[in-house]
């Protein structure tokens, strides 16, 4: 388990992280979402001791990473690792990773390289951006870590590569019991991946959601009324969008009770819509500032 405990960090005059506390269990995918500059990257960098916190600590399997750097053996941070090694050959990087991470599985690495049809090159900088991103993921997962931290892993990638990467990550979590922590501002990608979502705003974790709970606790409807939505029902829902007498709304609470209340409000017609994370952020957190 990774335990982030009361981590605070000030850079210059700006407080980037404020008493952040959360846990990440094994075999889970955690999404850290927030706007650019919210503190996502600093949080991930603190979790591998690139950044020293002013207070608080990070424990990996009950070992403090700042006092015992060896505890990071089971954590891999995938951000610019490939950029850092861009002038190295694939074979040199593999040899480097084998020395750093004793569990590195060369055979599995090669299998993944073949599966994604990534050729071995003399310098990694010869890869396209998408290939570099995939290569970084392959390296990370071939090292058989317990935790993989990904910072904006799909930024700037085309849709095909993105899908490939997401499928790959899901496979890894299912097969290897690895935990993934993804910092991103792309909510749509997390919907299909994450178990847990941490919303970070101005250095604070403002909300923590379990995605499975969300689907049981929230309903999204498109409702049409003869005139307008009754006040009594309106106070129970978040209006996501209104166009004349057509309302797109989100309701939170017990689903059966919510359905009964909707029917009592006598709509002309209504339809349940698929719930997206973006809807929740718009409703719960004032929208664009988070979900942008």
């Amino acid at each position: 388990m990774i335990q982030v405990q009361n981590v605070s960090k000030t850079m210059g005059r700006q407080t980037v992280l404020k008493e952040i506390t959360f846990n990440v269990g094994k075999g889970t995918i955690t999404g850290v979402v927030g706007r650019n500059g919210a503190g996502k990257t600093t949080l991930l960098r603190t979790m591998v001791s690139i950044v020293d916190p002013d207070q608080g600590t990070v424990m990996v399997n009950h070992r403090d990473i700042f006092k015992d750097p060896g505890s990071k053996q089971s954590v891999i941070y995938v951000s610019d690792s490939v950029e850092a090694l861009k002038n190295h050959s694939v074979s040199h990087i593999v040899s480097l990773y084998t020395d750093i991470y004793p569990n590195f599985d060369r055979q599995y690495f090669q299998e993944l390289m073949d599966r994604f049809q990534i050729p071995t090159v003399k310098k990694v900088k010869q890869y396209s951006k998408g290939r570099k991103a995939l290569f970084a993921l392959i390296l990370a997962f071939a090292a058989k870590p317990e935790y993989v931290l990904l910072d904006e892993p799909t930024d700037g990638l085309d849709i095909i590569v993105k899908k490939e990467m997401m499928r790959f990550m899901l496979d890894e979590v299912a097969k290897e019991d690895v935990s993934i922590i993804i910092a991103t501002h792309r909510l749509d990608e997390l919907e299909t991946l994450a178990d847990q979502i941490l919303v970070i705003k101005d250095g604070n974790i403002t909300e923590t959601f379990q995605l499975t709970d969300l689907r049981e606790k929230y309903k999204k409807w498109q409702v049409v009324y003869r005139e307008q939505m009754p006040e009594s029902f309106m106070k129970n829902v978040y209006i996501l969008q209104q166009s004349g007498r057509v309302y797109t709304c989100l309701a939170e609470g017990d689903v059966t009770t919510l359905n009964a209340e909707l029917e009592e409000s006598a709509p002309l017609l209504y339809d349940e819509l698929p719930l997206s994370l973006e809807d929740l952020f718009i409703a719960k957190l004032g929208g664009e500032s988070i979900a942008e």
Binding site: R45, V48, P69, G70, K72, Q73, I76, D80, S81, A84
Partner: peptide
């Protein structure tokens, strides 16, 4: 100057090492 320092710091070794 480059991102290599971040990569080094993220590895499971102390800064002293």
């Amino acid at each position: 100057n480059t991102r290599r320092h971040d990569f080094s710091l993220s590895l499971p070794y102390s800064r002293q090492t």
